[in-house]
Amino acid sequence: MKIAVISCIHGNYEALEAVLLDINRQKAQKIYCLGDLVGYGPYPNAVVEQIRSFDIPTVQGCWDEDIVEGLNACECSYPSLLAEKRGRVAHEWTNKEVYPETREYLAQLPHTLKENNLCFVHGSPHSNHEYLLPEMDAFAALERVLASDADVLFCGHTHIPYVRTLDSGQLTVKINRPNTKEEQIGFTTPIKKIINVGSVGEPRHGRPNATYVIYDTDTEEVILREVKYNYQITCAAILDAGLPPIFAWRLARGLEFAEKADDPTHVCER
C-alpha cells in the first residue's frame, strides 16, 4: 500500500493544498500527518479544518501542544534569543487566532500512532520537542526506534527530510543483581529505519517548496517529494495578518522562521 506522510504545516494553507493535490496525483491510499498544524503561518484554523475534513490520522506536534498547554518547552526549542522572541510573537498571535474547536481538536491528538510495523511521531517517541537529527549518535537513534516498537519510525520537527537506515547490530547487555552471578544477554537488532518527512509549510532546505514522503509498505520504497506552490500568497497573508514581515522573507527563501535544531546530542527535558 502506498501511503503519504506529511508534517509541520504551520498554518500554511497554500502549501497544504498543493501537497494534497500532489498526493492525489501520486495515488497514495492513505495520508498520515505528524503534527505542527499551527504556528508561524497565517491560517491555523483553515489548516486544521482541512486536515479534519480529510479525516487524516494526525499526531500532536510541539506547536499544537504549546497552543493547548502554553509555552513550557525546555531550551532545545530555540537556538537563540532572537529565535525565542520571534517564537513567542508567533505563539501569542496563534493563541489569539485559533477557534475553540481548533484548540479542542489539537488537544485530543495522540503523541504517537502505530500501524503494523510503522510508527508515526512528531519529534521522537519520547517527546514531540526532541529533534531526531540525521547525525544523531547511532545507538541513541536505534534506541528511539526500539522505543517505538516499530521497524520504521516516521518523524518531522527538523523540517529537513532524510532517510536513515540503522543496520542490524549486535547488542550485549550485562545484568548485575545482588547475590547473583553476572548475567550477559546478547541480541541482534533487525534493520530499522528513521524517515523524516520534512515540512509542508515551513521548509528549511533553502527553497520555499513543500516536502513530504510517499512510502510503499510492500516494497519499502521511500520517495521524498518536493512540491512547488505559490508561496507568495502565504507571504502576503503573513503581512496582512500582522505577523512579523521577517517570517515572509524567510519563508520565501526556504529558511526556518525561528527554530533550528543544532545540537544532536541534546535530550529534551520537557
Partner: peptide, 16 residues
Amino acid sequence: DFDSLAVFWLELTQGA
C-alpha cells in the same frame, strides 16, 4: 547573544 547576532547578520546582508 552570538547565535542571534549571526541570524540577524545573515538576514541583514541578504537583504531582509
